[in-house]
Write a protein that binds this DNA or RNA. Structure first.
Length: 560
RNA sequence: UGGGGCGUAGCCAAGCGGUAAGGCAUCGGGUUUUGAUCCCGUGUACCGCAGGUUCGAAUCCUGCCGCCCCAGCCA
């Protein structure tokens, strides 16, 4: 980054700290709790933490904040590692756990007790809540607040030894029950939990709380800048209190930035978990989920995600970013990369009445219009073809320049055809078009340079392969589902539609996860969970921009 | 009614006392055998409001308004 480029406020601080010599090296960390899958909000934090370290030739840790066993699991640990790596970041040998420091944390707790800055409270959870006061009223001291150091030490030792039941005792910091900042009203440091821990097994029966464990883990690792989201802003005084009391060699600085919210999506592990648990989606990696796993399966490139969060920026202002920005990043990333193919999602049969019955021609099709070096492939062309239902209109408005009765259209990489006859079933639905082709208009080698306004895609009936294609839409009908009282009330009922599509034969070898553009439709990729050569299943990653659809929509609105 | 934050165009976001960058969206137009891409062009932002300081304020001061977060033995 050059000096003239604008920096976000965090990078500005870091830059200044490097310039002033306050720090010789920048050390950051991404500290997820393994209690769910990572989502788009985490992408922002990952890119910030790993990005800042990379830009300054510093270091970054991937640290599991695993202080609440019971909610955490190895499945989540593995998923998180996979997701961060896929996003393009490397923690090298710096994979740690808050639980790696349990012994040191315990020693720190002892020293807090010894200096009279922490005590064991025997109040119940309910009583503690009552003693805490409210936002406008101060709390009251616990009757156990002034126990002797000896008694506290003995109690804490017995807590660790597992002599008490869950909830019977708790270690608290002795700060100020009257503080206007609730976090300073003697916050809990250690609670008793007789449960298996995903990483430490049954070694402990007491577990440290977030504020205590997180602050010290940062200090132990020599983190210079501890970057977190805004809701931890009023935890900062507590963060600093720990550092002052315990005087670790390293004194990290906590800086908060605002979370990234995506319109029409939820970004709370609790809500995402509910969608999974209730079976509203297939799982954490459902392609409609704003999880990294979901977006990967959907086909979003990691580069698009990184680009997206960089466009969002790092500030302290609450943000709700339009889905279109993300989609645009995806299109931009895929546009240059993806080869083009032909597929018909909603087939309508076209019979070329003047085309020989058994003739098959092989048309040369460019794999990418802007990148000839990607070569060409052959598309079989024959008398009977599938075209898109949307590409034919019986009563077409003047600006509709696809196929209509008596009208002409170009078949992409093929001939210009004219619609001579419309065949309907008993219900009056169009089931087939009788057309004639102009032999002189063959793509490329054609002797005619006639122009027609429209070009449509097609697939030869005899050569087409069938495939399930999943068309995804936003999961919610409200821009800010986070604000809804009940998630169910804002679900988009049409977030998934499955169609049986007709694909050009070359798609039979398409590998799962490899993105491709179906011309005029959008970007698609074989579903990583279900796609196979014999039973192809494609996910629609994102549609192409469609100015015709936009016009139609406007026309509809004008009509009311 | 306690404390902590935030308020610049539809959505993001620069700006750090000298007279409002940029991106996305929008709307025009050009190219095009993807109505895609690409290329041009397109915004009077009462800088939340009201006062004040100053030759000069989005930037400094005061008051007000609006929104977000905090009363887990969650993170």
């Amino acid at each position: 980054m050059s000096d003239t480029e604008t920096r976000d406020f965090i990078r500005q601080i870091i830059h200044d700290d490097l310039e002033s010599g306050k720090h010789a090296e920048i050390v950051t960390r991404f500290p997820p709790e393994p209690n769910g899958y990572l989502h788009i909000g985490h992408v922002m934090s990952i890119c910030l933490n790993f990005g800042v370290a990379a830009e300054t030739a510093g270091r970054s840790y991937l640290r599991f904040d695993d202080t609440n066993p019971g909610k955490e699991s190895a499945e989540y640990v593995e998923a998180i590692e996979r997701d961060v790596r896929w996003l393009g970041f490397d923690w090298q040998d710096r994979l740690t756990h808050a639980s790696d420091y349990f012994e040191q944390l315990y020693a720190a707790a002892i020293s807090l007790v010894e200096k009279g800055a922490a005590y064991v409270d025997s109040l119940s959870a309910d009583e503690i809540r009552e003693y805490r006061g409210t936002l406008t009223e101060p709390g009251r001291n616990s009757p156990y607040r002034d126990r002797s150091v000896e008694e506290n030490l003995q109690l804490l030792t017995r807590m660790r030894a597992g002599e008490f039941a869950d909830g019977e005792q708790i270690l608290r910091a002795k700060i100020d029950m009257a503080s206007p900042n609730m976090n300073l009203r003697d916050p809990a440091l250690y609670r008793i939990r007789h449960v298996q821990h995903q990483h430490t097994g049954d070694a402990w029966s007491i577990y440290p709380m977030y504020d205590f464990a997180h602050t010290l883990s940062d200090a132990f690792e020599g983190i210079t800048h501890s970057l977190c989201t805004l809701e931890f802003e009023d935890h900062r005084p507590l963060y600093e209190w720990f550092l002052e009391q315990l005087e670790p060699v390293s004194r990290p600085r906590q800086i908060e930035f605002s979370r990234l919210n995506l319109a029409y999506a939820v970004t709370s592990k609790r809500k995402l978990n509910a969608l999974v648990e209730e079976g509203i989606v297939e799982g954490w990696n459902d392609p409609r989920m704003p999880t990294i796993a979901g977006m990967r399966r959907r086909g979003y490139p990691a580069a698009a995600l990184r680009d997206f969060v960089s466009r969002a920026g790092v500030t302290k202002k609450d943000k709700l970013i339009e889905m279109g920005v993300l989609e645009n990043c995806v299109r931009e990333s895929l546009g240059d990369e993806s080869e083009r193919r032909m597929a018909v999602l909603r087939p309508l049969k076209v019979v070329l009445t003047n085309y020989p019955q058994d003739k098959v021609e092989l048309m040369q099709a460019m794999n990418h219009p802007g990148r000839p070096e990607l070569g060409t492939r052959e598309l079989p062309f024959s008398r009977e073809l599938w075209i898109e239902q949307d590409d034919f209109m019986e009563d077409a408005p003047r600006k509709f320049f696809r196929l209509k009765p008596g009208g002409e259209v170009r078949l992409r990489f093929g001939y210009i055809i004219r619609c001579d006859e419309v065949i309907k079933d008993d219900a009056g639905d169009v089931i087939e078009l009788r057309c004639s082709y102009d032999e002189d208009t063959r793509s490329g080698s054609g002797s005619s340079d006639r122009k027609v306004k429209g070009t449509i895609h097609w697939v030869s009936c005899a050569h087409a392969i069938d495939a399930d294609v999943r068309l995804y839409d936003r999961l919610f009908s409200e821009a800010n589902p986070n604000a809804a009282d009940d998630l169910h009330s804002v679900l988009n009922e049409n977030s998934l539609e499955v169609v049986v599509a007709k694909l050009e034969p070359s798609l039979s070898t398409q590998e799962a996860g490899e993105p491709v553009q179906f011309e005029r439709l959008g970007y698609f990729c074989g579903d990583s969970e279900t796609h196979a050569g014999s039973t192809p299943v494609f996910n629609r990653i994102v549609t192409l921009r469609d100015s015709w659809a936009k016009l139609e929509k406007q026309a509809m609105q004008q009509q009311g």
